Amino acid sequence: MYNILTKVSQLFSEPFRNMAYTAESFPVLFALFLGIVGAIAPCQFTSNISAFVLYANESLKRKREVWKDLLLYVLGKILAFSLLGLFTWWFGQEFQRNLTLYFPYARKFIGPLYL
C-alpha cells in the first residue's frame, strides 16, 4: 500500500517540486511550494485521509456535520505547522544575531586542531 501511495504522492508533488525549483529566488513562494510537496508526502497523505475518514465516521454516528470537524482539523494543522515555522525562524534570527559572539571562542578551540 505504501508503494502505491508513494507513486500517487510523486505524481501530485512533481509539478509543485518543479515550481519550487523555479521560484528559488522568491523565498516565500519557495517555502509555499515545498510545504505543499511536504503535505503530499505519503505519511502526511495517509494521516490526512485517515483523519478525514475518522471524522466522517464519527459524524455519521452522531448525525453531525462533518465539514466543521474537518475544517477545524485542517486549521489546527495549519496553525501547528505555522507556529513551528515561526518558532524556527525566530530561533534562527536569535542564533544569527548572537553567532558573532561565539567566533573568537570557536577560533581558539579550532586553532590547535589544525596543527
Score class of each variant (00 low, 15 high):
Leu71Ala: 11
Lys68Thr: 10
Leu29Gln: 05
Thr6Phe: 08
Ala20Ser: 08
Tyr102Trp: 10
Arg64Tyr: 00
Ala56Thr: 10
Thr6Lys: 01
Ser47Met: 10
Glu94Ala: 08
Asp69Met: 08
Pro27Lys: 04
Glu58Asn: 15
Gln10Asp: 14
Gln96Trp: 02
Leu101Gly: 13
Pro112Ile: 03
Leu75Gly: 00
Leu11Tyr: 12
Gly111Asp: 14
Ala41Arg: 04
Asn3Thr: 14
Gly38Met: 07
Ala80Arg: 00
Asn48Lys: 08
Trp90Glu: 12
Ile36Asp: 02
Ile36Thr: 11
Glu24Arg: 11
Leu70Asp: 00
Glu58Asp: 12
Leu113Pro: 01
Asn98Arg: 13
Gly38Lys: 07
Asn3Ser: 15
Ala39Lys: 00
Ile78Asn: 02
Asn57Phe: 12
Leu54Met: 04
Trp90Pro: 00
Leu86Met: 12
Phe95Ala: 09
Pro15His: 03
Tyr114Cys: 07
Phe81Ile: 12
Ala56Pro: 00
Gly38Trp: 04
Asn57Val: 14
Phe52Cys: 04
Tyr55Leu: 15
Phe12Trp: 08
Pro112Met: 03
Phe33Asp: 00
Tyr73Ile: 03
Ala31Ile: 13
Glu65Gly: 13
Ala39Ile: 01
Lys63Glu: 09
Asn48Thr: 15
Ser13Met: 05
Ala23Ser: 12
Thr6Asp: 08
Leu115Ile: 10
Ala31Trp: 08
Leu79Met: 09
Val37Tyr: 02
Asn18Ile: 13
Gln44Trp: 10
Glu24Lys: 08
Leu72Arg: 10
Gly111Arg: 12
Gly76Val: 02
Phe30Cys: 07
Ala41Asp: 14
Leu99Asn: 07
Leu79Asn: 09
Ile4Gly: 03
Phe109Gly: 06
Phe95Arg: 09
Ala51Leu: 02
Glu94Trp: 03
Gly35Pro: 02
Ile40Leu: 15
Gly85Lys: 02
Leu60Gly: 07
Glu65Asn: 12
Glu58Tyr: 15
Met1Trp: 13
Met19Tyr: 08
Val8Met: 03
Tyr102Lys: 06
Phe109Trp: 14
Thr6His: 11
Lys68Met: 04
Arg64His: 07
Met19Pro: 00
Phe87Asn: 05
Leu34Arg: 14
Thr6Asn: 07
Ser59Trp: 06
Tyr55Arg: 08
Cys43Val: 15
Ala20Pro: 02
Phe45Arg: 14
Phe26Thr: 05
Tyr105His: 13
Leu32Tyr: 07
Arg62Tyr: 01
Thr22Leu: 09
Thr88Tyr: 08
Asn57His: 10
Tyr73His: 13
Leu29Tyr: 09
Pro112Asn: 05
Pro104Cys: 14
Phe45Lys: 06
Glu24Met: 10
